[in-house]
Write a protein that binds this DNA or RNA. Structure first.
Lengths: 250, 250
DNA sequence: GAGCAGTGGATTGTCAGACAATCGCCGTGC
DNA sequence: GCACGGCGATTGTCTGACAATCCACTGCTC
C-alpha cells in the first residue's frame, strides 16, 4: 500500500539556516507518509485505512499510527466512522464549492490584513513566500510542487499575522489536498500555475484593494470551477456527499 | 485539580427524543471534563496539564488522556510545547481581535448562504437553534449557558450547509471558549445575551442582507471590544503573546 | 564569583501486548 | 423468508515499560 521509504522526510514550511536533519517525531513522519500517499494517488478517496496494516507498512506501533490518523481526521483528510474504520476523505461538487467560498472569504481577510500593514513587513513575507514558490514550481516531483503550492498559500495567511487564521489553515490545507489530488494527473501545468500565483503577488504589490480582492477571488473560484468541469467530464464525480463527513471530534 | 464527578456527562448539541444514556466514549468524557474545567475557571490560561496527573484525576489511562489532549491542542484550546508539557491556551489582545475579524468573515459567509436558500430550510434551522438557545439562556449553570451559546453560533454555521465551515468550527469554538472563560465571572448578563442574539435572528428573518451583515459584524466586534476593555480595566491583560502558540500539528 | 559541563528528575514520545466494545456479515433454524 | 445468534474484523481502552528530551541544579574550573 504505502512504500516504507524515507520515513524521516521533513515537511516544515521554513528554511532552516543550516540543517534540516530529520523529522522530529515518528508521528510526523507517519503524517507525511499518509499525506504523500494521497497526493501521489497511492491512496484514493474512499480507500480504507486500518491502523494495524498501516502500522505494519510503516513499521511503527499502532499507537503512533492512531495518533496520526486522529489528527488527519480532525483536519478532514480522512473521515472516521466509529468502530468501522477510517477512509480517505472525498469531496463532492457541493463541497468543492464550499471550499472555494470559504477560502475566498479567508483569503480576503488575509489580503486585507497584508495591505493594512504600514510597515511593509507583511508584504515582505509574501515576497519571501513567492521566492520559495518559484523555487519549487517547476520541480519534477509532483509532491514537491504540491507542497510548494500549499506552502505559498499558507504563507500568505501567515503573513496576515492572524493567529486564528494560522490555526484554521490545516483544515483548509487538507481539503485543498483532496481536491487537487483527485485530478492531480490531469492538470499539471507548471507554467500556468506560476502565472496564476504571480498575478496574486502582483496584485498585492500594487496595493489596490479592489484588484487584490478580485485576483484572489478569481484565483480560487476559477480553479474550483475547472476542477468541477474536469471531473464531470472525467466521469468520476461523486454527485452527492459519499460519506456524511462523520467526525470523531464531538 | 479537576473534580472527578459525572464522567459520563453529555455535551451533544441535540436533544434526543428519548435517551441520552451516556457518553459514547471515554475520550469524549475526558474532553468534556477538561472543557468544563476551563469554562468554570478551574483551569485557567497558563495552567499546566500533565498527562499523568490528569489520568489519575479522571481515572482513565494515560493513552486516553493523551488522545484527548492531542485533540484539544489541535483545536487550540491547549498549547503543547514538545517534551515540556501542555498549558491551557491564552489569548492576548491581538489574538482577540484576530478572532473577531475571522469570525466576522465567516459569519458573513454563513449568513449569506442562509439568505441565499430559496427553500427556507436553512432559515428554519436557525429558528430551531434559536429555540434551543432560549431554552438554555437563563439556566442557572454557567456551563449550560456557555454551551447553549456556542451551540447557537455553531448551528448558524451549520445552517449554511457548508461542510468546510462545519469543519472549521471546533477551532473557532475553542478560541471563543478561552476568550469568554477569562471574564466569565465578570459578565454574565443573560438578558443582554438573549437580546443580542435575538437581534441576529431578527436580522436573518428580515432577509435584508445589509442588515444581517451589520448585525453579525456588530455582534462579534462589540463583544470583543468589551472583552478587551474589561480585561484592561481588570488589569489581567496579557499584552503580548504569552506562548508563541506552538502547534504540535506540523 | 562567573562560566560551564555533568547529572538527575520530570514529562512527553513511542513501543508491545492484551482485552473489551462495537459493527457488519453469514449461516442456522424455524 | 426471516429473526437470531455467533463470528471475524476493527476500533477503543488499558497496562507497563523504555527512550528521548528538556530544565534546573550541582559542582568544578578558572
Amino acid at each position: 500500500m504505502l512504500d516504507v521509504v524515507d520515513l524521516a522526510t521533513e515537511e516544515d514550511g521554513l528554511r532552516p539556516a543550516l540543517a534540516p536533519v530529520a523529522s522530529v517525531s515518528r508521528r510526523q513522519a507517519v503524517l507525511a507518509q499518509i499525506r504523500r500517499g494521497i497526493v501521489v494517488g497511492a491512496l484514493r478517496p474512499g480507500d480504507k485505512l486500518t491502523e494495524l496494516s498501516l502500522a505494519a507498512d510503516l513499521q511503527v506501533s499502532r499507537a503512533t499510527v492512531r495518533e496520526a490518523l486522529g489528527q488527519l481526521a480532525q483536519e478532514g483528510l480522512v473521515v472516521s466512522e466509529p468502530y468501522r474504520g477510517l477512509r480517505v476523505a472525498d469531496l463532492d461538487t457541493a463541497a468543492l464549492r464550499d471550499l472555494a467560498s470559504t477560502r475566498a472569504a479567508l483569503d480576503d481577510l488575509a489580503a486585507g490584513a497584508i495591505l493594512d500593514d504600514p510597515t511593509g513587513r507583511r508584504l515582505d513575507a509574501v515576497r519571501t513566500a513567492w521566492a520559495a514558490f518559484e523555487a519549487t514550481a517547476f520541480d519534477d516531483d509532483p509532491v514537491v510542487r504540491h507542497e510548494g503550492h500549499l506552502a505559498f498559500h499558507r504563507a500568505v495567511w501567515s503573513a496576515a499575522e492572524n493567529v486564528v487564521l494560522d490555526q484554521l489553515w490545516p483544515v483548509i490545507q487538507a481539503h485543498i489536498t483532496i481536491a487537487l489530488a483527485q485530478d492531480q494527473a490531469a492538470r499539471h501545468d507548471p507554467e500556468r500555475s506560476h502565472r496564476l500565483h504571480r498575478d496574486l503577488v502582483d496584485a498585492l504589490e500594487s496595493g489596490d484593494e479592489g484588484r487584490v480582492r478580485a485576483a484572489f477571488r478569481e484565483h480560487t473560484l476559477t480553479s474550483v470551477d475547472e476542477l468541477i468541469a474536469l471531473r464531470s467530464a472525467h466521469g468520476t464525480a461523486p454527485e452527492t456527499e459519499p460519506a456524511p463527513h462523520g467526525r470523531t471530534t464531538a
